[in-house]
Every structure is written in C-alpha cells, then in structure tokens.
Design a protein around this nucleic acid. Structure first.
Length: 570
RNA sequence: UGGGGCGUAGUCAAGUGGCUAAGACACAUGGUUUUGGUCCAUGCAUUCGCAGGUUCGAAUCCUGCCGCCCCAGCCA
C-alpha cells in the first residue's frame, strides 16, 4: 500500500483499507513509535461458560482484525479461572464459532489455567515484597470493610501479617488445608482508593472443586483481575482489547504489570460492546430464554448466538461486513437490527441461487394448455452472477401460485393477478385470469386461466408490457417442504427497557409453513444450503431437522418488500 | 453527591481550530427491471447535550451546567 499523495486524504479512501477507528489509530501510532518492538499481538479471551453471540463476534472482529491487518498474531485464550461455571462443552463450541468467523489462532490456543503455576509464583513474589497478604476476613466482612463508593474502606486486621506467615498460609491454602471462605489472598494497595477495584482486591479464593483442565491439582483459584493481564504478559499480547465495563479494572491491570517481573508489558484498551434492537445480549437473559423454553435451544434461529445465526443462514462474510459498518467507539450504542439484515442480504444477493417456492399455494389451471404436456423452461440461477448458469424447470397445465399474488378485488396499484388481467409467470408464459372458483364457504380454491403460446420465455413478439411477474411451481412436479418463517424475537426494539424482558417476546416470532410447494430442483438440496426463494427471501436448509425425505427450510431474511410498505400505508 | 467513561441525523459513526459537518443503515421520491429484489439518481444535521467564554474563525480550546453508562461478586 503506497502512501496517499495528500496526507489529509484518509486511508479509508483506499478500498483495501479497513475503516479506521480509535483502536486502529492507537496501533498505527504504536507501530510508528516502535512500541512493543513493532509487534501487534491480540487475543480473544472468552470464559467457557456459554455460547458466543453476535456481540462476541464484534470483539473477535476487532482483535483478529487488528492482528491480521498489521501482520500480527491472534491468540484464542479461554479465561477458565472459575471451575464452578466452566465446562468443556463450551470450549469446543466457542472454537467452532471463532473458526467459523474466520479468525485464525494457528497453534496458539491457550487457557488461563496453563498459567496457574506461574501465577502462584508471582503471588508468592508479591507476598515477599509486602504487596499481598493472606486475609482471614469472611466474605461479608470483606464487603463491609471495603467501604462504599463514597466512603473509604478499613484495612483488614491481617493487612500487616508478616510475609513468612502469609507465605505459609498461602501454601496451606493451596494444599487444601482450609475450608472454602476461611482465607483469601489479597493485594496490599489502598483501602481508601477512590477506585473500588484498588481497595486490596482478592487475588485467590479457596475452592475445593475440580477444574475442567487441572483436575484436583488446585484448591485455590486466581481471580480474573489477577489472571488476565499476566496471561496477556506471558503471551506477549500488545493490545489487549475488551469492553467498556473493564475500564475501572485497568488501573489494577497496570498495577500487576508494574509490580510483577513480567516478561512483557501489554496495554488494555476498551471499546463499547454491541447492543442490537429487538434482541437481548446478556448471557443471563439468553440462558433464561433457553431454560424457560421460550426458544428451542441455544441454536434456535431466533437467538443472537452465533450457532443460531449460522443455523438461520447468516454467513461469516455478512457478519464481517456488519462489524465493519458498525465501527468501533466508546459511546454506548444500540445498532438497528436492519443493518444486520442489510449485511446478510448484501452477501446473499450476490451468492444465493434463485429458485421458485410457493409458500401459501393457490391452484391455477391453464385451460388452453394441453393436459398431458410438460415443457422445460430455462431459468436464470442468479441474475447477479452470470457464471451461475441456468436450469430447466418443468411447466404444466396445473400450477401453484402464491395466494397473495391474486386479488379478486384489487387496488389500482396491485399489478399482480386479478380477474381479467394478464401477468407473467417468471421465465414461462403470460396468463390471464378468466374465472375464479370458490368452495361453498366462499373461499377461493382455484383460478382458471388461459395462456398466450406466443409468450414463451416471458415476452411476446408484439412487445406488450406486463407489469406483474409471478413465481410458480408445477403441481405434478412440486416437492413439499416445511418452511420456518422467523421474525424478531421481541416485539419491542428495546425489550429490556420496559418491565420484564420476557413480557416483550414477539408471539409471532416463528411461523411454520407445513406444506410449501417447491420446484423440483430444491428437493436436491442438502443441509446448510443457502438459496433465494424468488420474491420471498433468503432461506437455508435446516441443519438439525431437515431430512432428504422431509426438507425443512429456515428463512434467513426477507427480501425488501416495497409492496408491503405501500399496503401498510393504505 | 467518590472515581472512571460517554453525549454529532431515526440508528451507527467520521471529524481533534479554517472550504457548504464524511460514509453506511433506515426513511422518502424518481428511473431501470422477466424478482414490487438488485441496480441507478436525488433528498434527508444552517448545526454537533445546554449555556457562557477565548479566537478573525469553534463540533474541535476554556468554564459552568444537564443527561446517560460502569465500579461496593471470594463472577468475568
């Protein structure tokens, strides 16, 4: 990349460059100054206690993006310091998600638990230096002694415990000689510090619990603050990115780096986490949705989890585009769901092959078309991509069209099928509606139409204009399938802001179409295939419930629907 | 009301003293169209939370005020 002629021209004018943001600018400046020996090394540090969601995708995108753009490295590190909540099950799931997003940690998969020995040695170091002590206050006492945001705390009676004594107690804590809660190891900083995090924070607590990786080796486990920065230091992380709520932890992060003989000095930078309209992002709330049965699981396509979005048909490319568009900043914000939808449409429009599928079938009989005749018509697979080619679709006397595409009494702007009017059947023929057949209840059950043999392929020698073009499926060739239509999980764009978020669930977030009629080629699709149902939306074959004999499709996103807007306006 | 952050359009977000405040999404209008999709064109902040001040010149600097978020887990 050559330097711009005019230095004031931002580099983002260069199409190959990432849009800039304050983190990127910091890295750029560090590279300029030669900080960290000119290295860029980032990491994504999930706790393996749940599944990743779109907010985590932003965090991965930032960390991985910084590393990949500047020829740096990216680590995946599981922050597994609390054996109570962590499970191996999540480790595999998270790796799958991060890999799917396209972030490559190469051979650098780590666990904070890899550093337990080193962390323990450093804890002893702090004790010897008079910077940490074993405290015998109970949990409640610690809380009480800590003071409040407005009042300073009081020093623990053990604050001046001799180093030798603390060392001995710490060793015995480690060996499991004491019950949980009996002692903690605390940093000796400042009980009157205006930042609560600096009031002699806990470094270790006793937990007689097996760890998913270290087994029964430990009876004490390090706290997040004592673990995170040092793990970054050990791995040579240069820019440790995290979300805004950790800003108050940064002075403590720095304190450990300054007071320990670490091999490297990482720096922490915080950005605003992602919020999205019409959904919730907190692990606790997502867990409630799953556990209380409001969704079918963590991979229910309505969930904002990555495994759900993957199942729904979202692509990593779409998520990356979305992340590029939302930017990186420090202001709390909630992004419009429509931007995510735009991103997935933008990608799928380019790559999804088009097919015809009728979701709510209405029979059309073409009275002047021979009963036993079947013609194969040529259909374009993707008008955005000539290389996608064409396919043959069978056309016959009896067809299914969309119920919405016929109106017995139609408004002026309705240019689909109505009595006496002519429309085009996509890639096939023009038809005119001659007669409407109803049952005893007055329900329309069939349309009798006539076709113009001259219009084969969808145009006529006389060049007459036909305003509406409908998709269709030949009855005798149709494949039946289940189609699941998803809408926002919540009806309120800010479900957390008014009452219990569960009260804002959208009762129509899932509509199941049991008996859609598809053109035969769709019957050949396999799990995970992504397509466009023309005039309907983007769909993918469900990876869980679909079988070759009974296809199940998930709607990823609708197409933009200008007609729906016109109708809504009245 | 201690400390740490943040307020630019409906939503994100550039901008860091000097031409008419980027861009995207959304929205609106028109055009093209064998998907009411895509695509194309146009419009959409006389003003940057508010009020003063400094300056020839302020979203950018100063002062005061207002609002929102985070911190008192032996969670991360």
């Amino acid at each position: 990349m050559s330097a711009p002629e005019d230095p004031r021209v931002p580099s983002r004018d260069d199409e190959s460059a990432e849009p800039s943001n304050f983190l990127r600018d910091i890295v750029l400046a560090d590279l300029e100054k030669g900080t960290h020996d000119g290295r860029v090394h980032t990491r994504f540090p999930p706790e393996p206690n749940g599944y990743l969601h779109i907010g985590h995708a932003k965090a991965v995108h930032i960390a991985w993006g910084l590393a990949s753009e500047f020829g740096g490295k990216f680590n995946l590190r599981f922050d597994d310091t609390n054996p109570e909540k962590e499970e191996t099950e999540f480790v595999e799931g998270i790796m799958e998600d991060v890999r799917w997003l396209g972030a490559d940690w190469e051979d650098r998969l780590f666990h904070a638990s890899d550093y337990f020995d080193q962390l323990y040695e450093w804890a002893q170091h702090l004790v010897r230096e008079g910077k940490a002590y074993v405290c015998s206050l109970t949990e409640d006492q610690v809380r009480e002694w800590r003071g409040t945001v407005k009042e300073p705390g009081r020093p623990s009676p053990d604050r001046d415990r001799p180093a030798a004594e603390s060392l001995d107690l710490l060793e015995r804590m480690k060996r499991g000689e004491f019950p949980e809660g009996r002692y903690t190891l605390r940093a000796r900083i400042d009980m009157a510090h205006p930042n609560m995090k600096m009031r002699d924070p806990l470094l270790y607590r006793i937990k007689h619990m097996a760890h998913h990786r270290t087994g029964d080796t430990w009876h004490i486990y390090p706290m997040y603050d004592y673990t995170h920065g040092q793990s970054d230091a050990i791995e040579g992380i240069t820019h440790s990115t995290c979300s805004l709520e950790f800003q108050v932890n940064r002075p403590l992060y720095d304190w450990f780096i300054e007071n320990l003989p670490v091999p490297h000095e990482p720096r922490q930078y915080e950005f605003a986490r992602l919020n999205l309209t019409y959904t919730v992002m907190s692990k606790r709330k997502l867990r409630r949705l799953v556990e209380e049965g409001h969704v079918s699981g963590w991979d229910d396509p309505r969930m904002p989890t990555l495994k759900a979005m993957r199942r729904r048909g979202y692509t990593p490319e779409a998520i990356e585009e979305f992340c590029d568009r939302i930017g990186v900043a420090k202001a709390d914000s909630t992004v419009d769901f429509s931007l995510l939808e735009w991103a997935v449409r933008e990608h799928l429009n380019r790559v999804a092959p088009r097919y015809m599928a009728v979701l709510r079938p209405l029979k059309v009989v073409i009275t002047n078309y021979p009963e036993d005749r079947v013609e194969m018509v040529d259909c374009v697979n993707n008008p955005e991509d000539a290389s996608a080619g064409t396919r043959q679709v069978p056309f016959s006397r009896e067809l299914w069209i969309e119920r919405d595409d016929f109106r017995e009494e139609a408004p002026r702007k309705f240019f689909r099928l109505k009595p006496g009017s002519e429309v085009r059947l996509k890639h096939a023929y023009y038809i005119t509606c001659d007669e409407v057949i109803k049952d005893e209840a007055g329900e329309i059950v069939e349309l009798r139409c006539s076709y113009d043999p001259e219009s084969r392929g969808g145009s006529t020698p006389d060049g007459r204009k036909v305003r509406g073009t409908l998709h269709w499926v030949s009855c005798q060739h149709a494949v039946a399938a289940e189609v699941r239509l998803y809408d926002h999980l919540f009806r309120d764009p800010f479900p957390e802001e008014s009452g219990d978020f569960l009260e804002n669930l959208n009762p129509r977030s899932l509509e199941i179409v049991e008996d859609a009629r598809l053109e035969p080629a769709l019957g050949e699709l396999t799990r995970g295939d992504r397509v466009q149902f023309m005039r309907n939306g983007y769909f993918c074959v469900d990876t869980v419930d679909s079988t070759p004999g009974r296809l199940v499709f998930n709607r990823t996103a609708t197409l933009k629907d200008t007609w729906a807007k016109i109708q809504a306006r009245g």
